[in-house]
Design a protein around this nucleic acid. Structure first.
Length: 576
RNA sequence: CGGGACGUGGCGCAGCCUGGUCAGCGCGCCUGCCUUGGGCGCAGGAGGUCCCCGGUUCAAAUCCGGGCGUCCCGACCA
């Protein structure tokens, strides 16, 4: 491929709008351009990378026995009403009407469509199992699109759905997808971690996320240093402290003390000369059902995902100052659980306290010596806080650390949630009608492209693994005006293409420095430079983008050498 | 939707506070010469409704009001 004929509008300077490395470099390398917030054009070079990711995904999905389909991007509202999600999906679902005034949406995911397809076509256990996937643009009207391709509104996703006669078969498929995903991310050269995850609004019983480790990641995960336990922080369980003091023996009754204008945990701790772990935060939440109070120790953070799950609610928002006053009789900062007439959910660490400080439900006052078990009318004690790096691993008790990651894959066991809603059934061997068991498996294809750059770059530009690079080899002639060099370079280029190498021939009338800079920026793994001097000696220079290692290869050995390197690097895995 | 920042040739920015030769700089682009191993040099040139609408004023990129858009920090997710 001739560089001069491709649209590769590289930028010398960083675009002001890009913060994240991958976003910056994708723009600078001329791979993407923004059309609107969270919506991007893929230029030729960017599309090549995207196609490489797709290719890996396709090969592994097919190998695992899945079949590719292509479902519509635009979906009728009826299906979503049938599953109940037209109501609950919220503003993220892009809704519109066609010319007849029929409600439609742009698909953010395809459970309804695929289930509808399968319920029409599958009627017998003999037709199961079935594993179908597609690679397609999704649209989710994200609250805040961010970091270029990492959180776009329109993005390329591989979504797969499997259908089974029973749970055991669904589980086997889940495992097969788990394995396929591991292979996919390995082949993409990513350093990643598989974590236990919350299944979220897509629903289902349990799930795993595949996280690419990166400091810029939006997700936090807890990872055990000793065993292979890892979980999304939203999900990571807290093991209750071993010793539970229970009701303290004959401690004195709670007492109100004046704490004028002392609201935050830090202020209370300083004012009363206690540590944050002796303080109980009382958080008043509104839900779509009733308001509730959640009790968390002063040095801990609530985990709203856990609270939502416990309460079985979709909406959970901290009550505003006015509501807090209404419900507790005090200003924000002085709410307390003693005598509070709301359902009270206490974190297990709160229940274990013997004498705590809480708000007094009276402005400018707190209670001391509160014994939660004795003094608070607790509705339920549960694990409601977010783990910290100090918490032990729930599996082996080992030490944990908190890491950042970019979610690139998510697999769910759906059970019969959708088959039930959409009445997707089959007849079993006994002629009995049964709901189909389902699984669902997603991969953020465009996100992988960005994640690979987050992990693979230096101050000169991108560093792609061979499997994802837009080209395998860059061929740079030094003095194209020199007829002999020109001729030799052209024939070398032709020979490389003939040999099946993906080569980008920089035939531009530019100085060498410009070509080197662009070549580094684009992240092409191998660079071959030929000039009058090297050619006269019968050599070409080969440089590896990743290591900078440079060798001189005799021209007659060049092709086999390159082919060998490419073969080798295609199979390399990132070190985790 | 809360909090912060921003909007000036294709890109990065200055000018705005203190209205008036301020429409300017660097990069990129075009032409010519020169140069050819890390974004070279010289000369000439093209290109802008200063985000939009309204107001104040003799006069607005600059001050005021209202929109729109973008980015960053928090609640959503591949």
């Amino acid at each position: 491929m001739f560089y001069s004929r491709m649209l590769i509008p590289t930028l010398k300077e960083n675009p002001a709008e890009a913060e994240a490395v991958s976003h910056r470099l994708l723009l600078r390398a001329g791979m993407i351009r923004k059309l609107a917030s969270g919506i991007y054009n893929y230029l030729p070079l960017g599309l090549r990378v995207l196609r490489k990711v797709e290719r890996v995904v396709r090969e592994e999905m097919n190998r695992a026995g899945a079949q590719e389909v292509l479902l519509p991007a635009v979906q009728p509202a009826e299906l979503w009403e049938e599953s109940g999600r037209w109501q609950i999906y919220g503003k993220e679902l892009l809704r519109f009407q066609d010319r007849h005034g029929r409600d439609c949406c742009f698909g953010p995911t395809h459970e309804e469509v695929i289930t509808d397809l399968v319920r029409r076509e599958v009627h017998s256990y003999r037709q199961l199992p079935l594993n179908l996937y597609q690679i397609q643009m999704k649209f989710r009207d994200e609250i805040r699109p961010r970091f270029g391709l990492i959180r776009g509104r329109e993005f390329l996703m591989k979504d797969g759905y499997s259908f089974h006669v029973d749970e055991a078969d669904a589980e086997a498929c889940y495992q097969a997808m788990y394995d396929a995903y591991n292979r996919i991310f390995q082949r993409c050269g990513l350093r990643f971690k598989v974590v236990e995850a919350d299944s979220g609004p897509i629903g289902g019983s349990f799930s795993h996320e595949f996280m690419v480790l990166a400091d810029t990641g939006e997700d936090l995960l807890a990872s055990c240093l000793a065993c292979d336990y890892a979980a999304n922080l939203e999900k990571a369980e807290v093991v209750p402290a071993a010793a539970n003091p229970g009701p303290a023996a004959a401690a004195a009754a709670p007492e109100a003390v004046a704490t004028p204008n002392v609201r935050t945990v830090e202020e209370v701790a300083a004012f009363l000369n206690v540590t944050p772990r002796e303080i109980v935060k009382t958080l008043i939440y509104e839900t779509e059902k009733e308001p509730v109070a959640v009790l968390i120790r002063g040095d801990h953070e609530v985990n709203e995902v856990k609270v939502k799950k416990l309460l079985g609610v979709m909406d959970l928002t901290l009550a505003g100052a006015g509501r807090v006053r209404e419900l507790t009789g005090a200003e924000v900062g002085f709410a307390g659980p003693v005598g509070l007439n709301l359902p009270i959910y206490a974190d297990q660490a709160v229940a274990a306290l013997a004498a705590a400080v809480t708000g007094a439900n009276k402005t400018d006052h707190h209670l001391v010596r509160v014994n939660p078990q004795r003094d608070i009318n607790i509705t339920q004690v549960a694990d409601l806080r977010t783990v910290t790096a100090q918490d032990p691993c729930p599996h082996c008790g080992g030490c944990t650390k908190i890491l950042r990651g970019i979610e690139v894959g998510h697999i769910f066991k759906l059970g019969i949630k959708y088959s039930q809603a959409l009445k997707a059934t089959f007849l079993d061997e006994a002629g009995q009608e049964q709901f189909i068991f389902m699984g669902c498996y997603g991969i953020g294809v465009s996100r992988i492209m960005a994640a690979a750059i987050e992990q693979g770059h230096d101050d000169q530009g991108m560093i792609f693994p061979m499997a994802l690079a837009p080209f395998q080899v860059a061929l740079i002639p030094i003095s194209l005006n020199d007829a002999a060099t020109r001729e030799k370079a052209l024939s070398l280029h032709a020979a490389m293409e003939e040999a099946g190498l993906e080569v980008l021939f920089d035939d531009r009338d530019e100085r060498p420095g410009v070509k080197f800079k662009d070549c580094d920026l684009l992240g092409i793994p191998l660079r071959v430079v030929v000039g009058p001097k090297t050619l006269a000696a019968g050599n070409a220079e080969v440089r590896q983008r990743r290591t900078g290692e440079t060798i001189m290869a005799p021209l007659e050995e060049l092709l086999p050498y390159l082919q060998d390197r490419i073969r080798q690097e295609m199979n390399e895995k990132a070190e985790i």
